[in-house]
Every structure is written in C-alpha cells, then in structure tokens.
Nucleic acid binder design. Structure first.
Length: 476
DNA sequence: ATGTCC
C-alpha cells in the first residue's frame, strides 16, 4: 500500500480521509512494515464499504487485513438501522462464525511428549477432517432446526459437553434471534452429516504448549502458565454457513437494486437491515452462528473422548470460544452517546474489554480472551480485550496471519510431504488427509502472525497475554 | 472458506 495516500495518526494507526462519496473515513491499524506490505485493494475495498448507507464512525482494517470478497478480510464496519443502514453477506464472509476455542488440559509439556504420536493418531481417527468430511451424527429436519436455534446449548443437552462450558462461549453458547426457516433446505441438507467435523483450509485442531507469557497478571487470571498444554480448535459453520452466504449474496444483489442502493462494487451486495431480506439474512446468519458453536462443542466432546482414553488426567475445561466472522447487534458509543449498531466483523475477533456487561464474571476484570490462530506450525496467541478497543474499533481485534502467497504458488513452492517432514524435525506432528492441503498451508505461505499481534497490542486493540506453539496439528 | 464450478 502506498503510505503517501494515508494520514498517519500514530505509530500504529493510519487514516484515509472521506472523499468521492465516502461517508466516513477508513482507519487502518498496522505498523509501517505491515501497511507497506498490505495489498492496495484493502484500502480500495474499505473505502468502498464507507460508501454504503448508514455506516457509522469509520471502516476499520485490522493489522492482518487482506483483500476479500467485497469487504476486506480483517475489516470492521458498523451500521445504524435507523439511518437506512445495511447488512451485507460479504461483510460477514462465507464461513459464518468461523472461530477459535481453547481448552486447558491441566498438563505440562513433559506429560504429553511421550504420547504425542498416539494422541495425534487418535485425534485424527476420531475428528473428521478435510473437504467434504462427514461425521457420525445425522440430524433429522427437527433436530436440525433445534441445533440452529440452540447452538452449543443444544449440543450440551445432547450430551456433547458440560453445562459449565456454556458460560465460556460467546453469547453463552446460544445466539438469540436465529431463524431456521430462513435457512434454505439446500444449506440444511449440506450440513446434515457435517456436525462435529473440522473442514479444511486454515482450520485445525492443535495440541499446543504455552511458550511465552507477556502479561503475567492476566495470564494468571486466565489460568495460563509457561509450559502448560492447551488444545485449540479453529473451525466454523461448514457447508451450512457457506450455502447461506451463497444464497443471500444472490438475493442481496436483487435487494440492493430494489432499494436503490448504489453499489461501488457488486460484491458489496447488501440489503437494508429493516428490509425482509435483511431480516431473513440476520436470522439465517444467527442460525449459522449456532451451527458453528454446536460444531466446535461436538469437536470438543470428541477431543475429550480421545484424551479420556489416553491421558485421563487431562481436564479439558474450556478457556473461551470466540468467533471472527459475524454481524452482531451491539451497543457502542457513537459521538459520545450509546447506540445500537450492527457490527460486521469479517476476519476480526470480537474483543470486549474489562467491565463489559456481556462478559461472564470470570472475565469482567481482565477483558475477554481474544484467541488468535496462527498458521500451521507457527505460534498462536492469546490476548485480552481492552477498554480502548471500544472507541478504536467497535471492540474488535485481528484474527490471525493473513496469506502472503496464493494457494497455487504455495503448491508450486513446497510438497506436502516435505512440509510435514520439516515440522516433524521440529517436534511437531501433523496429520492431514491432503498433501496438497498441507502444501497450501505451509508456514512460509503466511505472514508472520507475531508482527500482527504486536501491532494489535501496540495499537490498543487487545493486550498481548501469551504465546502458544503447536505440538500436534490435525489439519484439514 | 467451500460437495475447491450448476
């Protein structure tokens, strides 16, 4: 990105002034190196978003932003329904409610080390992974609707997990306002056999070690110490969310024309929040959020079953579960006054700070855990929400390492086998059904997530708490 | 991300 076009606000914040039909500015959080590497299309796409009706404040780009379908990935935009604000399927993304959950094992690295191959094989045999992977669960139409309304709460009632898990899940495990009847039968059919499956791409299940502590006080409050072993699950709403995205992108193209919304890019298809299509999308998207929460809950249950057989002393209590692809109605300060706005976070993690009333008591003083998944074989990070993020970014932070290289280029550069061998030489065990998938996800194909979280911390979006490094990686 | 193109 050409930094000469930007106004520098601070060492970690940049601004594009509103010109040529932009209703509000664009604010990008990054250091000079990250913003120089950032694709020009991030600025272009974020500027396009600011031209949509009812946008509030600014369109924000996180330090890991890269170009996406319509909206940049790593983009945040909030809209006011009372000012003709819109909701956009491209502003949420195809993998609705993709997110990360981390579990404590209560074990140290030394206890895992002799059993890591056994654990890797058992997890790989138990958790279905890969494109089109199917689980053992088959949902009837009635059960599907109950799952889409109940989320992780439904999953726990079915025996997949513990009631105490729910408090440590965004929305306490159940997104209100879901409308299963707004989800196409095609989307439901695609999901029928996909509950409890990991999917592909950058999704993973990892056994990780806490390798660095940056904020001892918050780490202690989160129950994390150097050498602790945790399990992290990164996945989303599988075929259902993808189909909802596809269905509504098409319907929103019609709606935008019908309501006379001038689209700077046809990929920014959207509908007024208060229109029938807008309301149906919100209902369907919330159903997909519940699908993702239930999915991560079932994978948690499968993970616990594996540990119960191999390392029964492992606790596998939940630290937290948070999404990075959603549109949520939230109260935010707008020009000094509290207001309900529709916050799109696409590749941006919700990051509520200390005292936020939606957080469980256990995180009221620290702010919520902000879970940032790294690329395969590299580190992931645990941050904490800050009080500042409210005014900086509608309480949002980054979500992970963006790609530095296309999938095609990665496959030409590495073979899956050599990537697995190189990671094995570093003590990291990878299990995947796809050599090609592993090559596409090679660590070298991604930007360094460390630079991203440092920038997020310095910009004030979230506070860096701990680094975790993989021991075992189950990869789609 | 995705029954990696209806």
């Amino acid at each position: 990105m050409d930094i000469n076009r930007l106004t520098r606000l601070s060492e970690f914040a940049w601004r594009i002034e509103p010109v040529n039909g932009m209703r509000v500015p664009v604010i990008i959080y990054a250091d000079e190196a990250l913003i120089s590497e950032m694709d020009e299309k991030v600025a272009e796409q974020a500027a396009n978003v600011t031209k949509l009706p009812g946008i509030i404040g600014a369109c924000y780009a996180m330090p890991d932003a890269h170009w996406g379908y319509g909206f940049p990935i790593g983009g945040v935009a909030a809209f006011d329904a009372l000012q003709g604000g819109v909701v956009s399927a491209g502003g949420v993304g195809f993998d609705i409610s993709c997110g990360v959950r981390t579990l404590y094992t209560g074990l140290k690295r030394e206890q895992i080390e002799p059993l890591k191959t056994v654990l890797a094989d058992a997890l790989y045999a138990t958790v279905p992974v890969g494109v089109g992977s199917r689980g053992k669960i088959r949902l009837s139409p009635t059960e599907m609707d109950e799952m889409l309304t109940g989320g992780a709460e439904w999953a726990v009632k079915q025996g997949y997990g513990r009631p105490e898990d729910l408090e440590r899940i965004e929305e306490r495990g159940r997104m209100a306002g879901a409308r299963p009847e707004a989800v196409s039968s095609h989307a439901k059919e695609r999901q029928r056999a996909e509950m409890g499956t990991l999917g592909s791409g950058n999704h993973y299940l990892e056994i990780q070690e806490v390798s660095e502590i940056y904020d001892p006080a918050i780490a202690a409050a989160f129950g994390l110490a150097q050498g602790d072993v945790v399990v992290t699950i990164h996945c989303g709403s599988r075929g259902l969310g993808h189909q909802i995205g596809t269905d509504f992108l098409k319907r929103m193209q019609g709606a935008a024309a019908q309501y006379g919304i001038a689209l700077p890019d046809r990929e920014l298809a959207c509908a007024p929040i208060e229109s029938p299509v807008g309301q149906e999308y919100l209902g369907a998207m919330r159903a997909a959020i519940n699908c993702a929460l239930a999915n991560r809950q079932i994978i948690t249950h499968l993970t616990r079953k594996v540990f119960a057989e191999i390392l029964p002393e492992a606790r596998l209590d939940l630290l937290y579960d948070v999404s990075h692809n959603t549109c949520k109605v939230e109260e935010h300060l707008v020009q000094g006054r509290k207001k309900l706005v529709y916050v799109h976070r696409k590749g941006a993690t919700r990051a509520f700070g200390p005292g936020h009333p939606d957080l469980p008591m256990v995180f009221r003083e620290t702010g919520q855990p902000v879970l940032i998944g790294g690329s395969m074989g590299t580190a992931s990070y645990i941050l904490a929400g800050t009080a500042d993020s409210e005014t900086l970014s509608f309480a949002s932070a980054c979500h992970g390492a963006g790609r530095a290289m296309s999938r095609h280029q990665a496959v030409r550069t590495w073979s899956g086998r050599e990537v697995v061998d190189q990671l094995a030489a570093r003590g990291i065990i990878v299990r995947s059904p796809s050599w090609r998938g592993v090559a596409e996800e090679a660590p070298g194909a991604y930007k360094d997530v460390h630079d991203v979280v440092i920038a997020a911390d310095r910009a004030g979006l979230a506070r860096l708490v701990a680094q975790v490094k993989p021991i075992v990686c189950i990869k789609g």
